[in-house]
């Protein structure tokens, strides 16, 4: 039993090589763990890796009825079409700017909100606020876009009516390219920020209350407590979420952008997702959108693994 405890521990840096038992022993020792692993493995094999041949569609001219085998191979034609597009760099730029803004403004928002919620002493108040800020998550994007229109239109929208009274001018929020990104960001924060706190609040619930009490006795003020106790408790969750988020840097959430895009703000609004959609509806282009998806995935995985590597450099446990 004592030995089992030793082995159950993660290999420590120092005596790792000396302690590592042979493969056969390790397999036998962990048989229950492998049993637990099995359902999940089967799931990934069946529903994720069996359909993986779909990636090959990127190199074909796939048509649903013709089927996979009969559709012609076109090699890198779809990639060529994508990269040779004169708008490629505009799309890349718009996509990256939006992702970057999301990372800077949206990503920390739920963390801050969770920290503030964690500071609330009144349980009832906290619970009511939590429930209220989850609501926007359930409102579909179509409705969010419609509400945005109602609020911001220059024709009788309440925001512009107020502006008109106070400044004597209206602002064409919905058609001005400069306003496109702030509006998208605001929509995202409004819709998902509250919902995003859940995972941090779960992590925070693991923090020992005694630590705060000890800190208080030591004379640490609230900011110090947040900095030295609360934040470290959710640090690894933040890092993991950040790493995973890097995988979708080239995704901007199609529906939202598509709904807010119009001819006057296109210079800021057109991103990969909307562009692929435009190609997709006219072409029914399974292959083309698969190719663009593949490009995004390759970039995503490089960023995920790169960020993970960086995190490890800084002493975080990262994904593994």
């Amino acid at each position: 039993m004592k030995q089992a405890i030793e082995r159950g521990k993660p290999p420590q840096a120092a005596g790792e090589a000396a302690y590592r038992p042979s493969l056969a022993i390790r397999l036998r020792r962990d048989k229950w763990l492998y049993l637990l692993l099995l359902p999940g493995l089967l799931y990934f094999a069946l529903f994720k890796y069996v359909p993986m041949w779909g990636i090959l569609l990127a190199f074909k001219n796939y048509q649903p009825f013709t089927g996979f085998w009969k559709s012609e191979w076109v090699g890198l034609e779809h990639f060529r079409l994508f990269f040779a597009n004169p708008e490629f760099f505009l799309l890349l730029q718009n996509t990256l700017i939006l992702s970057f803004l999301n990372l800077v403004f949206f990503f920390p928002a739920p963390i801050v909100l969770a920290l503030l919620l964690n500071e609330v002493r009144r349980a009832l108040f906290k619970r009511v606020v939590q429930t209220m800020i989850y609501i926007p998550h359930f409102i579909s994007m179509v409705i969010v876009a419609s509400l945005t229109y109602v609020f911001l239109t220059t024709e009788g929208g309440p925001v512009n009516e107020l502006l008109l009274q106070h400044t004597g001018e209206k602002i064409a929020f919905l058609s001005d390219p400069d306003w496109f990104r702030p509006i998208i960001l605001l929509q995202t924060i409004w819709k998902e920020c509250g919902w995003g706190t859940i995972i941090f609040l779960a992590a925070l619930s693991a923090v020992d209350v005694e630590q705060y009490e000890a800190a208080t006795i030591d004379g640490a003020n609230r900011w110090k407590q947040i900095w030295h106790i609360t934040l470290p408790a959710i640090r690894s969750t933040i890092v993991i979420l950040l790493i995973l988020r890097m995988g979708s840097v080239l995704d901007n959430g199609f529906e939202q952008i598509y709904l807010m895009l119009n001819p006057l703000n296109r210079s800021a609004a057109e991103v990969f997702d909307t562009y692929v959609y435009a190609m997709g509806i006219t072409q029914g282009a399974f292959s083309y959108s698969t190719a663009v998806g593949l490009f995004k995935s390759v970039v995503g995985i490089i960023l995920v693994l790169g960020t993970n590597w960086l995190a490890k450099k800084f002493g975080e446990s990262g994904l593994y």
Binding site: V50, G54, G300, I301, Y320
Partner: peptide
């Protein structure tokens, strides 16, 4: 469990599947 043999391989499979997928029709 960090010591589990094959763990990193499986984790890599999982991460890969998060970014790469077969799409609507193959599934």
């Amino acid at each position: 469990r960090r010591g589990l043999w094959g763990r990193n391989f499986v984790l890599n499979l999982v991460i890969f599947s998060m970014l790469f997928g077969g799409g609507m029709i193959p599934t």
